[in-house]
Every structure is written in C-alpha cells, then in structure tokens.
Design a protein around this nucleic acid. Structure first.
Length: 874
DNA sequence: GACTCCCGCCAAAGC
DNA sequence: GCTTTGGCGGGAGTC
C-alpha cells in the first residue's frame, strides 16, 4: 500500500488528518520508497471527509490484507492491470486529496494547519517520483495513449509544477518520457531504457569518464583538487577535455527533442547532468560514484573557471535531485563510502547491467547474452548521440580515432572467433535467446525471474565444469598456500537472488578471469598481471585498501594490501552491513555464484591460474614463433625466448594438442595478445558484479576484504576476478618497465568490451598500432591525433598503482631467478601526476638509471608503480 | 555542524 | 505579454 506520505506527503495543505500518519511516516521514507508495490497500493477505502487517513495507520504493521494480497498477485501477474489499478487509484486518491485539502482549509488555520503539513521527508522528490512513476506502467503498450499532462500530474500529486519538471527532466534524460508540446509529455516507460543506458555508457566511455573519475580521485588524494579554477583547468586539460568534448544531450533515434527549449540551458540542464551522472556509473567499476566526484567532474566539464564552492554546492544539490529520481527508478541506491577523510555520500548503480555493444537489443531481455557480440556500436554516434545544440558549435560525439581502428580490428577478430567451435557466445547465446523469447518482457516478471535464476545456475554450472575440468586435467598442481574458509559472502550470495539485477545473465567469462599473476612455470611462461581497472584506479590514488589477491599457489605472485591502516567501507544509509551483502550477493547473480559453493576462492584461483597458464603458454609459444621469424632484429624480443626453445617447442606441440579444447574454453573469456601477457578481457559491464563476488573470495585471504569501497567513491580491495590484465600489447615484450597511468587502466573497459567477444583461441594477431595508439591516447601519453607505431619503443610507461598497497610475492615467481629490483622511471609525460604517491615512501621512483628497456625486458619485470611485479622470465 | 534537499524566486524561452 | 521551463541558491529539516 502506498505509504501515507505517498498520498499526502506532497500536499502541504491537503489533509487535516495527516497527523496520525506522521508517526507512521517517521519510518524513513526511503525505505518505503524502495518498493513500488508499497507505493502503488492506494487506500481504496479512504473516506475523505470523515476518516481520511485512517487506513494508512495500519500500513506499517500489516500492509497486506487479503484484499491487498489479491491485488498484489494480480498486479504481479499483469503489469498492465497493475498500472491501470495504480492510475485509477491514484486518480481517485488525488481527487480525494484535493477534496480533503479544501475541507482542511475550511476548518483549520494558522498553527493548527501548519501541524498538518507533511514532514520534509514526505515531500521528497524521491517519494514524489515514486508516486509519479506509479501512475504509469513501466512498459506501456504502444496502443495506449501515454500522455502526461503536466498540469494534471501536478494537481493530482499536489505538488507544484516545478517539482514535476525535476522529475521529468531526469526521466527525459533516460528517454522514459519525451516532451511533446507545452505542458504535454509522452510516457515511454522503460522501453528505451536499455538502449539509452547503452548509449550513455558508450558516450561515457568515449569521453573518458573513467579517466576523469580517476583523475578526480587522484587529485582528491593528493589534495591538489581545489576549488580554484586554475587547478581544475589543469585537471580538465589533463582529461583531454575542452569545449569541443563536452557532452550534450544524448538522444536515441526517434527520441529527439521536439522542443528546442532545452537548447538555451543545455550546459546546466538537469537532463544533461542526469545523463552524465548515469554515465559515471556505467563506466565505473564498481559502479559506485560519490557525489563529490560526480560534482567535480560535471563542474569541470562545464565551466572550469566557475568552479567555486557555491558552484559545487549547487551541483551537489542538483545531483541530489537527480539521484532521488534515479533512486526511485531503482537505478541507483544511496550508499556511503567511508574513507580516511570521512564518510562520503555516494550512489551505487543498481540498474541493469549495460553491455554497450549489443545493438538494437533490449538489455532487459537479450543484451545479457554473453558475451555480447561486438557489433556496430550501438547506437552509433550519429544515431543516438545527437547534439541538440548545433548552433552552439558544440561538437557531436565522435568516435575516438583510435577506437575506430580498434573496433575494426576487434570485429575482425570476432569474425574469426565466432566461427570457432567454441564461440564464447555459445554458452549463453541460447539461453538468452530463450530468454528473449519471453513475450512482453515485463509482462511475465515472475516467470522471467525464475527463468533467469535457472539460466544463471546453468551457466554457473557450466562454467564451473569448465574451470574445474580444465584445471584438474591440466595436471598442474600448485600447492595451495591459502586455504581460508569461504567468506560469509558465499552464504549471502546464495541467498541473494538475481532479482536486483534481472538482466545480468552474465557471461561466464568473468568467472574465468583469473585475477592472479600466473605462476612461474618451468617452461618459462611469461607472466600476466591482472589488474582490475578500478583497482588500478584505486592504486593510482593510493587507496590504502588496494590489494591484489594472492594466488593460492606456492609460486604464485600475489599482490595484497600492505596498508591496513585505513579500512574503507561502504555503508548504506540503512545499515553499514548492507552494501557488502548487496554487492556480494549481486555479484553472485552472475554465473560465478554456484562455483564458489563447492570451491574455495583459492581453489578457483588456482584452477583458473592453471588454465590461464596453459593458455598463455600456448599463446606465448605462438608469439615466440612469430618473433623468431619476424623480429630477428629485435634483440629484446629474442631475449624473451626461452633458451631452450626447442624443448619448449616440443613441449608445446604436445601440449597444444592436449589442451586445445580446454584452452578454448578459457579463451572464450580472454583475448591473448602476443605480447606475453594474458589479457582477460572481461565484460566491463559485468565487472562490478563479478568483482564483488571475487572480493568476497578475496576476503578469504585478507581481512580487509570484508569491506567494500569504491575506487571512485572510495577504496576497494582488489580481488581476484576484479583484476584485469595489464596489457600493453604494443610493447610486445613482457618484461618492460611498463608504466600506465590510471587512465590506461580506465581505458580497459573500452578495450575489454570490444575485445570480449573476440576471444581468440587461435593465433592472436599482433597488437596493432591502433591498439597501441588507443591505449596511449587513453593513457594520455599521446594526444588524440598522434599515432605511434606499435613497437617496443615506448617501454617506459608507468603502470600506476598503489605501490604501498601492492605487495608482491614476486619472489615466488622468480624462482631461481632473482629479481632485479628496478625502480620505475620517473614519468615524464602528462601522466606524471598519476604516479606520484603523495608522501608514499614507495612512490614511483625512478628505476634504474638506465631507461633502456632492453635490460628490463630481459629481466622480466613489470613495474606497477612503486612496486614492481616481477614475473618469471627465462 | 554537516548533510540533504525542499522551496520558490526569477530569468530564459516558448507561444 | 503571458505562460512555461528550469537554473539556482537560501535555508530548513535531519542526522
């Protein structure tokens, strides 16, 4: 039933009997607001004149009368019925409220009347939005006339129009409504939501929001971010931002604004701001964004020179407005991030996972197919990201030149892969097709939910089988050094149905992403470092909680936090323990969940690492073959070749045959570049969820893993599957002093998204220069127009990371091969700031005096800022 | 005292 | 010139 506040809350003068309701409403409305059902149930028996609010009094205690139960069942069965009911009841309710209001005004006055005013919370925009949304079905039929008359709505909801505009603006940003004419809007519901989110994510990626977030975070940590224009101008410059890169309103085809009224105020439009805010979530991993960061980014993008405290405060206000609406839409959820410097409000994305590369499909039903085919970017810039304000000379969205090349390259790969016997799409494609076959997606919510759960279980089982089988059969048995019990998250995860993320039928690829550094093998397998983008971010901002999960193998290099001083945690407003559970359990909506039921995290890591190692061995072998034939002139490459190459060849010949099928399974989730690195390219959109799962796993290795924090809005412990391989394909040679700015990691989602489906089981193409340029440009090492040949020239990039937080057991990897400690070079590029770790004794320091990459190559040392991760290299 | 965010002024744009 | 939109920031309510 709708809470009393829902009915009367917005009315300042509507009900003289609101007094009793107040006590009831003292319960945080936000909690009540989380349930549409609660809000949409209206008091049918409310008698305006005599017993106005009575029914509400019993709401908290026993909201489910037999009648309401029946209603709920009916509503659940049919959204259409539900919406009709809602509208009818709302209409009746509104009339009733108006009538009561008049009566109230007649009978009360002065203080007495004031007392009847609803509390502030009862008038919240979120609650108002709930009531607004209750009026319309999530998925309106096209046959219906879903027009919104602003006056009517304002009157019925008993709020001033101004408030309705706030809601409509945010809904417009998601294309849930569109303005038809003055005072008239069209209601589209969530039909366009998935497409919109896809478009927003894409635009967000193209505009390097991930990098911006990281930059802001870093500045925060360095206390360099100040509210003076100069610094922010620098920041924006470092972002590569300028007026031309400013994001205007993102439209979908057919959803263009008919009115040009928005043009004038576009820069500060709540619509645009809302879209940008959503973008931040979509490009973040995990998808938690603090208001502060969001405000800074939005401000920085608007008017750098105007960035002052008042602007900041205003931005925060607007973000609260937006967040309230988004919360009502259940797209985000308020959380708190506790950092060293205090508790910060933040929001966590709870909406559907957004897979940017699925064109023309509804995420709710099909886009979760895993992995999604890399089709044409959807909607294309021209199609969906129109600039509303051409007269202002603002630039339309354009695909980054390097991205275009990258996409082409990726698509080529994908074609090859899709013809492969074990196309990554296989596993889930069918399931999602089945899923897509569901008629009228939301019309069968219960069935869909059940179906999703089943599918997820199936996929998880498949994944588990693959991983287990692969690892067990490979014959490699790494001793487990970590045998911690499964964290409580497992139970929590199991409890958590995938309901909160109905569309997250995830690709199993995530599960296969091993967040470990591959153990050194006798055959001289090179190494792989998986860094989750977010973790990389965290590291660069020297988040103390950064940690890499140590691989449960004796000779596995693990990275873990060595800084336990600060325990960052995210707490929901309603309970500090909720987020962790939510995050973890949500994570488990992915196919990984079942896996952890029977395996410990360490076991999984072990198996994965073994499998990865095998695959990597193959790849490296192929790479080495290529190098032999094509890179004779490159002495550094030769050094990478194992001295006993013939032995390796033999080894690989047999190994290839034996393990081909197994590796194919793994390859589904990974893209291998002949660089010597394994690059698990996970689905960005899944990252956060899977990441949380693995955080949970990581919890088995570190107490610090028991809390969650955002790399954006906080600090999160790095755990296994959250890690992504740091790959510098262009460098071609593994053992380099590779220094990446956080943005390089941030760029990973784009890369990984694109590459996801291009999992390459066969010979991986050599990293193209486009990839290199793309990476470099995202890293900020090169301007957008500059093309850099793909060769090992750029060997001294920095891999930003949190040195002090990166403990490395590289010794393990360096069995028999003493690591040669080398300090990373002092970055000399624009990325320099990325790697300064304020006050950190382990700040990225200059590596050995020599900047000669050759030496480092031979040493097989990959530097992650301040802490070098050494891997085996014969 | 900090955090939230409602409220309504008022200017820009639309009609 | 009136109406509609919506940016904006004061300041009240809440924690």
């Amino acid at each position: 039933m709708q809470p009393a506040g829902g009915e009367m809350g917005t009315g300042d003068k509507e009900n003289h009997s609101s007094e009793p309701c107040r006590g009831i409403l003292k319960t945080p409305l936000k909690q009540a607001a989380t349930s549409h059902l609660v809000l949409t149930e209206i008091q049918p028996d409310c008698q305006p004149l005599t017993t106005p609010p009575k029914p509400k009094e019993i709401l908290p205690a026993d909201p489910w009368t037999p009648t309401s139960n029946l209603k709920m069942l009916i509503s659940a069965a049919s959204p259409e019925i539900r919406s009709r009911e809602q509208r009818r009841e709302l209409s009746n309710n509104a009339n009733m409220v108006l009538h009561m209001k008049h009566c109230l005004q007649e009978h009360l006055s002065g203080d007495e009347y004031e007392k009847t005013q609803p509390s502030r919370k009862e008038k919240s925009l979120g609650l108002l939005c709930h009531k607004f949304l209750a009026r319309y079905p999530d998925y309106p039929s096209t046959a219906e006339n879903n027009y919104i008359c602003l006056d009517e709505v304002a009157e019925e909801l008993n709020v001033e129009r101004r408030r309705i505009y706030d809601i409509l603006n945010v809904l417009e940003s998601l294309h849930m409504v569109s303005r038809l004419a003055k005072n008239r809007y069209a209601w589209h519901g969530r039909h366009n939501l998935s497409k919109t989110l896809q478009a927003l994510k894409k635009v967000g990626e193209e505009n390097k929001y991930t990098q911006q977030i990281q930059m802001v975070k870093k500045r925060e940590y360095e206390h360099e971010f100040d509210v003076d224009g100069e610094r922010n101008e620098d920041m924006a410059r470092s972002f590569g931002l300028n007026e031309n890169s400013e994001i205007s309103f993102v439209e979908l085809p057919g959803m263009e604004f008919r009115a040009a009224s928005v043009n004038s105020r576009k820069d500060k439009s709540l619509r645009v701001m809302s879209q940008k805010f959503v973008m931040l979530f979509l490009v973040s991993t995990p998808q938690i964004v603090s208001l502060e960061v969001a405000a800074k980014i939005l401000i920085g993008e608007d008017q750098l020179e105007d960035l002052d405290k008042s602007k900041f405060k205003t931005k925060i206000r607007r973000l609260y407005d937006i967040a309230n609406v988004l919360s009502s839409l259940e797209l985000i959820k308020k959380v708190h991030v506790t950092e060293e410097r205090g508790r910060k409000p933040a929001f966590k994305w709870t909406g559907p996972e957004v897979l940017p590369s699925v064109q023309g499909t509804k995420l709710e039903t099909t886009s979760t197919t895993c992995p999604p085919p890399i089709s044409e970017p959807i909607p294309s810039k021209q199609q969906c990201s129109k600039n509303l304000f051409p007269s202002r000379g603002k630039q339309n969205f354009t695909r980054h030149s390097s991205l275009i090349k990258l996409v082409k390259s990726i698509e080529n790969d994908r074609r090859k892969i899709q013809s492969a016997p074990t196309s990554p799409v296989k596993i889930s494609a069918g399931t999602h097709q089945d899923f897509a076959a569901f008629p009228s997606e939301m019309a069968q919510l219960p069935a869909i939910t059940e179906h999703k759960l089943e599918e997820q279980s199936k996929k998880a089982e498949e994944m588990k089988m693959n991983l287990s089988g692969s690892a067990l059969e490979c014959g490699l048995s790494l001793p487990k050094t970590v045998s911690e019990p499964e964290p409580p998250c497992t139970a929590a995860a199991a409890q958590q149905p995938a309901l909160t993320q109905p569309l997250i039928a995830c690709l199993p690829s995530h599960s296969s992403v091993s967040p470990v550094i591959l153990p050194h093998t006798p055959s001289g397998v090179s190494y792989t470092i998986y860094l989750h983008p977010s973790q990389a971010h965290t590291v660069t901002t020297y988040s103390p909680s950064f940690m890499l999960q140590p691989l449960p193998g004796a000779n596995v290099t693990g990275i873990k936090s060595i800084n336990s001083k600060v325990l960052n945690k995210i707490t929901t407003e309603e309970g500090d323990n909720q987020i962790a559970t939510d995050d973890v359990t949500k994570t488990l909506t992915t196919t990984e969940r079942p896996t952890i039921k029977s395996e410990t995290a360490s076991q999984q890591c072990l198996k994965r690492s073994q499998t990865l190692q095998e695959s990597h061995l193959i790849k490296r072998y192929r790479k080495d073959e290529e190098n032999l034939g094509t890179s004779l002139g490159d002495s550094t490459k030769d050094e990478r070749l194992p001295s006993n190459s013939s032995q390796m060849t033999h080894e690989m010949d047999s190994f290839l045959e034996e393990r081909q099928n197994k590796t194919e399974t793994l390859d589904q989730n990974m893209t291998f570049f002949p660089s010597g690195y394994l690059i698990p390219l996970t689905q960005c959109a899944h990252g956060n969820k899977a990441g949380f799962l693995n955080k949970e796993k990581a919890g088995t290795h570190s107490l610090q893993h028991t809390t969650y924090s955002s790399p954006i809005a906080g600090v999160i412990p790095v755990t296994a599957s959250e890690l992504k391989a740091v790959n510098i394909p262009a460098f071609h040679i593994t053992p380099l002093n590779i220094m990446l700015s956080p943005t390089s990691i941030a760029a990973a989602p784009v890369l990984s998204n694109s590459c996801l489906s291009s999992s390459n089981t066969s010979s991986a193409p050599s990293p193209s220069s486009s990839v290199l340029n793309f990476t470099l440009q995202h890293v900020g090492l090169t301007p957008a127009g500059v093309q850099v040949p793909a060769n090992p020239v750029l060997q001294h990039m920095v891999v930003p990371s949190q040195p002090e937080n990166v403990s490395h057991s590289s010794e393990n990897l360096q069995e028999g091969q003493p690591s040669v400690p080398k300090e990373p070079q002092e970055p000399q590029t624009v990325t320099e700031n990325f790697f300064r770790t304020p006050g950190g004794p382990n700040s990225v320091s200059s590596p050995s005096a020599t900047s000669d990459g050759t030496d480092r190559i031979s040493q097989g040392t990959l530097y992650i800022p301040q802490r070098k991760l050494e891997v085996s290299e014969d």
